[in-house]
């Protein structure tokens, strides 16, 4: 019954990469400032827009800031927004989706209506309006905005799953015993949704990192904070692409892509856990079956 999550390379690779970036976000800034002696905000006037060199391993920006230090500092900002956004989104989708599926009826319809409303809302213009209204948009606020506007898809999935689990006999049987709805949701229904929730969280993580970058690129960001998104935005504003300053925008872009890939790879593993049909193990079994069949038939075949 147990399925080895780390049994295939995909998940292991994803976990290693994601773990690296988490560590980078936590320890990186300390490492760059104390060990490498670099400061993400310091302007080195002697090296403006210089390509990678010994002093600046990833080169410097238009303003003479060290790109490596910025990438490391930016990891903190991006990962923070990613995790917080994913947590906010996942929590809201659980709070809305699970009761919607479990209760059905009027409660369910109301929650479902709310979900659909958020699904069809024109998110981007709304974020601009909201960001303009809120004025100072710190990273926390950005993360909350991303979470609040991004939960609806997950809630729909959870609603469907919760509905199917709630109608299964074992939930009915425990209800027959007199279990309260609260306990039925938490001990009988929710454990069956953990796989979905984990996969939603990872999806949310990718989404939030990308959304942060996208919003920063469009100008919705905290100008004092450093994230991969703000780096790319600064590069864009200074026409880094046209001027060939590749070392300015490639590292943050690559980091975003790597985090996305890592989370997606872990997600494949989680999906296989939740849905045995996707397991690569079954492909192995199919190969093995074919091999046994060939051996069994060999005497006749030759």
């Amino acid at each position: 019954m147990k399925y080895d999550l780390f049994g295939n390379g995909k998940v292991t690779f994803g976990v290693v990469v994601l773990g690296f970036f988490v560590l980078l976000a936590i320890l990186g800034p300390w490492f760059t400032s104390t060990v490498l002696g670099l400061d993400a905000r310091a302007n080195d006037i002697s090296a403006i827009s210089s390509p990678p060199s010994a002093a600046h391993p990833l080169g410097t920006t238009q303003f003479g800031q060290d790109v490596l230090a910025q990438v490391v500092e930016g990891a903190r900002g991006s990962m923070f927004v990613g995790f917080l956004g994913a947590i906010v989104g996942t929590v809201i989708s659980i709070l809305v989706g699970v009761p919607a599926g479990y209760f059905g009826g009027t409660t369910g319809n109301a929650l479902n209506f709310l979900t659909n409303l958020f699904l069809v809302m024109p998110v981007l213009p709304l974020i601009f309006v909201l960001a303009g209204y809120l004025q100072g948009t710190g990273l926390v606020m950005i993360a909350f905005i991303i979470g609040v506007f991004g939960w609806a898809g997950g809630a729909r999935t959870l609603r469907a799953q919760a509905m199917s689990v709630s109608n299964r006999d074992f939930v009915q049987a425990m209800r027959m015993l007199g279990e309260s709805n609260r306990r039925l949701i938490f001990t009988e229904v929710m454990p069956h949704l953990y796989g979905w929730i984990a996969s939603m969280f990872l999806g949310g993580l990718i989404g939030a990192v990308m959304a942060e970058a996208g919003l920063a690129f469009l100008g919705v960001s905290d100008s004092s904070a450093i994230s991969w998104g703000t780096m790319i935005q600064a590069a864009q504003q200074q026409s880094a692409v046209l001027r060939g300053l590749w070392w300015w925008f490639v590292p943050p872009g690559l980091c975003i892509a790597l985090v996305g890939t890592a989370a997606a790879l872990i997600n494949f593993g989680v999906d296989e856990l939740a849905n045995p049909k996707l397991r690569s193990g079954s492909r192995r079994v199919a190969k093995r079956t074919a091999a046994i069949r060939r051996t069994a038939l060999a005497p006749e075949g030759v």
Partner: peptide, 22 residues
Amino acid sequence: PPAVTTSGHVVFHPQSGEPGID
């Protein structure tokens, strides 16, 4: 798969009297 016939024969004899088919 994963079911696989490892040994044995299943011979079908047509009514026409043709030889059996495994």
